[in-house]
């Protein structure tokens, strides 16, 4: 484990309590308006990220983690109805107009996508995409923006930066593309980076390189980072805190060391047991039974109850997110930190 994870501060949810809070998400909910009315996608999501801290938003596909990120960025779909409060650097941004929200993008928040091949423009040069951002957000001249773009590419470990600026995304390898994406996201000096599965599409050895780069950037620029992933093992390596989502709900929240090693919510435990771990010598895995209920078909009460081995009648009522052991969990029958 990294050194910064070991000391357990008084405020157990934050390993860096002295640092100011960059992002605070309070009771965020999101529904999509369609012909039949409102379809809830995300409910009651709350967490915060301090300067220099990485928080993981973990869950399987369809749990609402990516749309939560787009709601924070202010780029959620047009038919989204968003509730709750989002505060960035002490300023409530959830009540701002879409125009003012857009002004925060790039300058205060940077976004890194899973698939850099499709997240970068196919027919505009790398340089054009970077300088557009720099000129618009920082008011740089074309020459200044080009120089800054070259420096940024150099900083993220791209050789021959000047040539790459003239090139296009299809000419780069997967790892290089993601480096360009990172350079673009940090280009205007944001205080928060949201990374949506930034290494999922990459090979293991490249994944390690990109994670290292993200960690370097975080240290160097003291960035707050929201790291969206489905892989709990990456969480343990990379993030101080973890928020586990299931069917639009936060089901567990705590220090990532605790969430990964001693989860109290049966779903989080199930996620860990389902993955074949290195050298554990198991001949059978412990899957979570059934499948994730699709959006719009969530059960009443605890949404995990139909798949949970510990569920009983009480689980027909919705549990609150409460402290159990070392972490917060939304569960009537939490596991008490079984290692």
């Amino acid at each position: 484990m990294s050194a910064h994870l070991t000391p357990l501060p008084a405020d157990h949810l934050s390993p860096v309590p002295q640092a100011p809070t960059v992002l605070d998400v309070d009771n965020l909910s999101l529904s999509l308006r369609n012909a039949d009315g409102l379809l809830p996608i995300v409910t009651d999501v709350s967490f915060s990220i301090r300067q220099g801290e990485a928080v993981a938003l973990v869950g399987e596909s369809g749990c609402g983690k990516s749309i939560t990120a787009s709601a924070i960025m202010g780029i959620a779909p047009e038919n989204a109805v968003i509730g709750g409060t989002i505060t960035l650097n002490g300023k409530v941004i959830s009540s701002l107009s879409p125009r003012d929200r857009r002004r925060l993008c790039g300058r205060h928040m940077g976004f890194i996508f899973q698939e850099p091949m499709t997240a970068l423009h196919p027919t505009l040069s790398i340089g054009r995409q970077m300088t557009d951002t720099l000129r618009h957000n920082l008011g740089l001249s074309h020459a200044e923006a080009t120089n800054r773009a070259a420096e940024l590419l150099d900083r993220v470990g791209i050789p021959r930066a000047r040539d790459i600026l003239k090139g296009y995304v299809h000419e780069l390898s997967g790892g290089m593309r993601q480096r360009v994406m990172i350079a673009l996201a940090i280009s205007c000096g944001p205080s928060l980076i949201i990374a949506d599965e930034p290494t999922t599409a990459l090979d293991v050895t490249i994944q390690a390189q990109v994670l290292d780069l993200l960690e370097d950037m975080r240290r160097e620029f003291n960035l707050a980072m929201l790291f969206i992933t489905h892989d709990l093992e990456v969480v343990g390596d990379f993030c101080e805190k973890a928020v586990v989502m299931y069917a639009g709900d936060v089901v567990e929240r705590g220090l990532s060391a605790d969430v990964v090693n001693a989860p109290t919510h049966p779903y989080a435990r199930g996620l860990i047991d389902a993955v074949p771990a290195h050298d554990d010598g198991r001949t059978r895995l412990t899957p979570i039974l059934g499948t994730v209920p699709p959006v719009g078909q969530w059960p009443e009460g605890c949404r995990f109850a139909p798949r949970c081995t510990r569920a009983d009648a009480q689980c027909q009522t919705r549990p609150a997110l409460e402290r159990h052991g070392q972490t917060d969990a939304r569960c009537w029958h939490p596991l008490e930190g079984i290692q």
Partner: peptide, 26 residues
């Protein structure tokens, strides 16, 4: 619906530029 349009928005580019240059081009 392409991710690179979302990227352009997430980079803070104004909608006129996102549509007029990034989306129009493709």
């Amino acid at each position: 619906n392409e991710p690179y349009i979302t990227t352009a928005r997430a980079q803070g580019l104004p909608e006129s530029k996102v549509i007029g240059q990034y989306a129009m081009r493709t």
